[in-house]
Nucleic acid binder design. Structure first.
Lengths: 246, 246
DNA sequence: GAGTGGTCTAGACCACTCC
DNA sequence: GAGTGGTCTAGACCACTCT
């Protein structure tokens, strides 16, 4: 054993092959890699694990290891939440990705609020709030899960309670209702994905992958929090950009 | 094999034992864990890998597996960059952690700028810039590496070029020099750590751990970028909070 | 020197995909 | 059914820490 573990050496060679374009689309099978590099298939898998953690490849059980040609999505705040985007009929997320985006699995329901959400929205703990959950695909790759929570006394019975919230999205409707969000706080943590997130974000395995957990609180001019949005992002799919003044 | 892999089951039990306080300080050795759960030591290690990715434990080769009792650091922007912090003689990072913070390995030098830094600072590519690098420990745990780049025509020969930049830190000195930073852009990505970062941040292994890479551009009232700060954070050590208006 | 985490082998079985 | 990724065993060796 040199100072560097074998699986790191194999990973480095595969990384170079991907960067140079020698490997595109798909990698040789683990068995072939193992033979080629003179290692066990377990070690070949460890090498692939490294690349997967870097977002360079994605693995599909029973199928193969595939190269991920994917440019990270740049997600700009606060520009993306400005009025100009909504005015043109675009929702928040369009600003980052344009036509490559697809929103699927939209589910709207009323659910009891968690204590964190209840406190933020100013309702009794356990009381129902409007819940909008959905999944974002970019170039058919799932990159984000999101669930919004809104107080029923504002959003109940409005267009917001429909799966299609209309042009400009939820925030445009809130503005029309006299509750335009103008101030935002985003709280960001990196953590290991749970099994459900591994599946819905196509992360392959919980080992070696992390997600970014963002909770955004949206408040109106008068300081009322009118939406809590919990987002789970594939950590390798994004660049987050924040602009602010001292 | 049930639907859930064995190493996940073992990880779940260890996680519960840590949460309940049954395991504190230190875990039994891998050999003991292997025997107790009736698995190979390799599998016991996989379980520990899961916990390490979650930031629950840290491993020390030749020594043991240790429980990480650590509350995440909340890093608030833009408050932390405001004048009030500097006025009281505190530097930026103090706002998040107070007396638990230690800054070590401060190295100040002049280095040729990378193309990204050169472009931002408005100097010729390859020209020298002032470079301040340092490492942050909180409760003796390394949590962040940072390197600042400043143009020599502003910072050269000033207090900023000393390892101790004085009360209020670099930004206070820039303000005194008539180049107070007032506008900031932070660009954040999650990525796998390189071997140097694994060592300096005590991440144990590059497998299963991610870092947050933040590049901050600090600009003055007249729109000149006077500092680029590249930070590498242990992803499991932080909560990042951003406040902004639409 | 004893004990520990980290890496690796050779071989096995499983779940899954693709033809 | 053949091939693929994912998990697991039993045993080995190494680098390191702690005494």
């Amino acid at each position: 054993m040199a100072s560097e573990p074998t699986y790191q050496r194999v990973a480095a060679e595969l990384r170079a092959a991907i960067a140079s374009g020698d490997l595109d689309e798909r990698l040789p099978s683990l068995a072939v890699l193992a033979q080629r590099y003179g290692v066990t298939s377990d070690i070949a898998r460890s090498a692939v694990d490294v690349l997967r953690a870097e977002g360079l490849v994605t693995t599909r059980r029973g199928s193969g290891v595939y190269v991920r040609r994917f440019e990270r999505i740049t997600r700009r705040s606060p520009e993306r939440l400005g009025r100009q985007y909504r005015a043109s009929g675009r929702a928040v997320q369009d600003s980052d990705t344009g036509p490559r985006l697809r929103v699927v699995d939209i589910v709207v329901s009323e659910q009891p609020a968690s204590s964190e959400v209840a406190e933020a929205l100013g309702v009794e703990a356990g009381q129902s709030v409007l819940t909008r959950s959905r999944r974002f695909l970019v170039d058919n790759r799932p990159v984000q899960l999101a669930t919004s929570f809104l107080p029923l006394d504002i959003a109940g019975g409005t267009r917001i309670a429909y799966t299609d919230a209309g042009p400009g999205g939820t925030y445009a409707r809130l503005a029309e209702l006299g509750h335009e969000p103008v101030r935002f706080t985003e709280r960001l943590t990196a953590r290991a994905p749970n099994p459900d997130e591994v599946e819905r974000l196509d992360l392959g395995s919980s080992i070696g992958s992390l997600v970014l957990d963002i909770v955004r609180f949206a408040s109106t001019e008068v300081g009322r929090c009118v939406e809590v949005n919990q987002m789970t992002l594939d950590a390798t799919a994004y660049i987050l950009e924040y602009d602010f003044m001292a």
